[in-house]
Write a protein that binds this DNA or RNA. Structure first.
Lengths: 186, 186
DNA sequence: TAAAAAATAGATAGATCTATCTATTTTTTA
DNA sequence: TAAAAAATAGATAGATCTATCTATTTTTTA
């Protein structure tokens, strides 16, 4: 028996795929309705404007990001292990084609003018950073670097590696970060 | 006496400003010719298509990036000093409004489909990385991390901090990288 | 099962986009 | 200074964009 996907979800699923892989400005309403197989009236009934659809897309990404991490790290208990799972998760997200981080991409595309978008993205990145700060605080590490500083800069390394994996179409930057942090916290 | 800026340069200067600050897809040919005060025929005479203008923009950015670094670091001789100048340069580039890195932005906007763009951007990032690898090799540092690994990950930190400075509209991520690397190579 | 709500196809408005073309004027070169 | 090259204003083509509207059909709710 057919599992019916609701119209709103069909729209949002297609928009998610296209905004992420093809870019927000390079995705037109007409392509979305064609691929989702819905009427244009339905789209504007659920999302009053393309910008509302963008916000729904970002909220969905935010929710799924933390759900995905939760699932990915279940079974790990030691903070060191969880930190390594974090980088593994972000590597896994980039497989196989290095499309980058959806939050970074939208800011690069449309800037920070739209306050709702800016706050969603800033909030998302801030939550990742906080999560890592918590994990690093729990470590029994006594290297030369303050734990919070190490956590913040580890986060930035992962961010930079994600961007440069896309640019070079290569996993190496991300693998290099993993190697680095392993040495630092071993 | 009036210094005449050539038509081609007026086009490229305006395109540079708009592509960088407003985005490539959000900048139309008509806005460029209006702000540059030139005829549309002249634009297409110098640049056969908008994509050719994009390539010229990226080549200009590439050239000016290394010229700018050269100027910024002149007077510094010790590798440690040069490394700190590198991060200072990338901080200075982000002042005062955190518009990010033009190379990262264009890839986030249009992806890696266009081979000329992809190669230009990958080449640029690779040259930055090589430059840093050279500086770190010259350091007399014997921390726990291999010099090349440290150089690569320092580069990635700066990249991530640039992106996150835009997102949070704050210099802190970049200052944090500086603090981190200072401790690592002191 | 009747009424209300949701979804549909498809036309349409009006703005905007890249690129080409024409006819004229200005600037540069030989 | 004459010929060639470059630049100009502005119309135009044809595609594409977001969003609205109408009239009809399908689905859901009471």
């Amino acid at each position: 028996m057919k599992e019916k996907v609701k119209v709103r979800d069909r729209i949002l699923n297609v928009a998610t795929d296209l905004f992420y892989h093809q870019g927000f400005n390079q995705t037109g309403i007409n392509q979305i309705i064609a691929e989702a197989n819905i009427a244009i009236g339905s789209l504007y009934n659920h999302f009053p404007s393309k910008n509302d659809l963008l916000l729904a897309y970002l909220r969905k990404q935010e929710e799924e990001w933390f759900e995905g991490l939760e699932k990915f790290t279940q079974g790990s208990s030691h903070p060191r292990e969880k930190i390594l799972k974090f980088i593994d998760y972000r590597i896994a997200q980039q497989q196989p084609d290095f499309y980058g981080c959806p939050f970074i991409k939208i800011i690069a595309e449309i800037g920070t003018q739209d306050q709702q978008v800016q706050q969603l993205v800033e909030g998302h990145k801030s939550r990742q950073r906080m999560l890592l700060q918590g994990l690093f605080q729990q470590l029994d590490y006594d290297g030369p670097i303050d734990k919070k500083l190490l956590a913040d800069n580890f986060f930035l390394m992962v961010e930079g590696a994600t961007v440069n994996a896309t640019i070079s179409r290569n996993i190496k930057p991300l693998e290099g970060v993993k190697k680095f942090i392993k040495k630092m916290i071993s």
